[in-house]
Design a protein around this nucleic acid. Structure first.
Ligand SMILES: [Zn+2]
Ligand SMILES: [Zn+2]
Ligand SMILES: [Zn+2]
Ligand SMILES: [Zn+2]
Lengths: 165, 165
DNA sequence: AGATGCAATGTTATGCTATTACATCCGATT
DNA sequence: AATCGGATGTAATAGCATAACATTGCATCT
């Protein structure tokens, strides 16, 4: 992803490596679990990874159409369902969009930080935070299935640009 | 809301009191801040408080239509925008729906627990959790504007019913 | 009173997001 | 070859949200 210590991707990081890495991980994971990373699924994952910004289903659909495929919504949603189900991408509820997961296949609760300005999203997995949520749930005898934590604001890159302008 | 120590509302709690309380709070708050709780806004808030389940905009719209009002989507969304902006209701992103806020007007970060079975949503505001998120954000120099924490699972009432069946 | 300004609401149309239902294809198994 | 099941294709529709512009109604100023 990024070379520096800050998880927010620099504009000049080698993004091709991000994509290659994500696709390689996906292939490994699917092979290990007997899942079929079909051409469509693979291509959708690749499109999601074109950047670090969550992408909408119809955005993906239009890009596929531009390549000549002309799929219909269910095709894209089915691929997205597969990718979400097998933890290769996260759904970003506050945006109705999808972003590549950085710990593919690992059943983790992610916290997603999304920049209002540039749209970049970064994922974190703070176990302490996650356990605190579980503890609070237990306190009211609520059985947790899934937790969604999404934080919006301004990313460090955009904050820098701010005081340049 | 509920008589017991568990924040999940019992089936036999006096829900009329919830609604009355919410509307009274809203009136007080709007009066104090010079806001106009117009008939539509008030009615939408009341409909949201008809239960403890998040309600969709079109659900509200249909109920208004059934009463003879026949509003159009923008009317409802404008009322919802007002209610969200002034912190009388929370938007539940994972459901595209809206639920009454139990600390109206107070700028707090809420964690919302939603039952997959009965749809009831309960709000919590754990300051420790909230500060942990802020700390994590600061760690990457991310400036937080808003945090969304939504937890889905099975509420205590539904868990009880479970082992009856 | 009449003119002006502003917030709220009404109206029409449209855009974006997601799913249902059914048909077809294709590779693996028998 | 027949069968089966998962993946994809196709058409229609459901569900969520906003843009753009018209109108209303009330408060303020002249
Ligand atoms: Zn990258
Ligand atoms: Zn940014
Ligand atoms: Zn109640
Ligand atoms: Zn329940």
């Amino acid at each position: 992803m990024s070379a520096g210590r800050n998880p927010f991707p620099s504009v000049r990081h080698d993004h091709r490596a991000c994509v290659d890495h994500a696709l390689h991980d996906a292939e490994t994971l699917c092979a290990a679990q007997g899942l079929r990373l079909t051409p469509i699924r693979r291509r959708v994952l690749e499109l999601i990874w074109q950047g670090h910004k969550p992408r909408g289903a119809y955005e993906i659909l239009e890009q596929l159409a531009a390549e000549g495929h002309k799929p219909s919504p269910p095709t894209v949603y089915r691929a997205l369902d597969f990718l979400v189900e097998h933890r290769l991408v996260h759904r970003v509820n506050s945006r109705n969009a999808f972003v590549g997961c950085v710990h593919p296949g690992d059943p983790h609760a992610a916290q997603i930080f999304i920049c209002d300005r540039c749209g970049v999203a970064v994922e974190q997995s703070d176990g302490t935070l996650q356990r605190r949520i579980l503890r609070n749930a237990q306190g009211m005898h609520f059985l947790v299935r899934e937790q969604t934590v999404e934080i919006t604001g301004i990313c460090p890159r955009c904050a820098e640009h701010q005081h340049e302008a």
